[in-house]
Design a protein around this nucleic acid. Sequence first.
DNA 1: GTTGAGCGTT
Length: 228
Amino acid sequence: MSDMYIRVAEEENEEPMEIPSEDDGTVLLSSVAAQFPGACGLRYRNPETQCMRGVRLVEGVLHAPENDWGNLVYVVNYPKDNKRKMDEIESAVKVKRGFQKTSDLIVLGLPWKTTEQDLKDYFTTFGEVIMVQVKRDTATGNSKGFGFVRFTDYETQTKVVSQRHMIDGRWCDCKLPNSKSSPDEPMRSRKIFYFMQYGEVTDVFIPKPFRAFAFVTFADDQVWPSDK
DNA sequence: GTTGAGCGTT
């Protein structure tokens, strides 16, 4: 009985992992938790009733149903609190995918000759454009050498802000404007949830101006993404 | 008729 393993998976349809049992046929919860951090128990689907059943757990020791682990795949239980966090992660992902607002971007370094049509033609190659502006002297009509652009999709905005742009022969920069009309930055608290699955987050730093990356500090010095 | 870091007449 010293070389027995039971098969355990994160979810019913996922790749099982073999977890060693003890000499008396039990399995230590700590053995499960070593492979599935945060685990608080096991469950399995009863072949007769097709219902999920919990595995008996007494003082950190998991006991085989009917004194035989059989060839079943056991599924890891996590505390409800963890489940709640996972829901928050999923909703945060939805926020990123669907409800992220765009803002006007300032375009610096434009050639004097560049028109709004030129700007629209250029930026449309990245994605759908809501509007473009070239700022001009009201008296002369001459370009001031900068303008604004707004995109439909936040993904497009992120892409555009993260690189430089060759427009009519000059390198230009797109940034979030300092001044008005930027309904941004309620994202700090949301972004944290992306990393909560990897460990406790102690700090999040998002560079200003926005440069499409950020620094996340963990309490633990060894955090790795799960390999799914 | 010029210029080259910045921040938006409506």
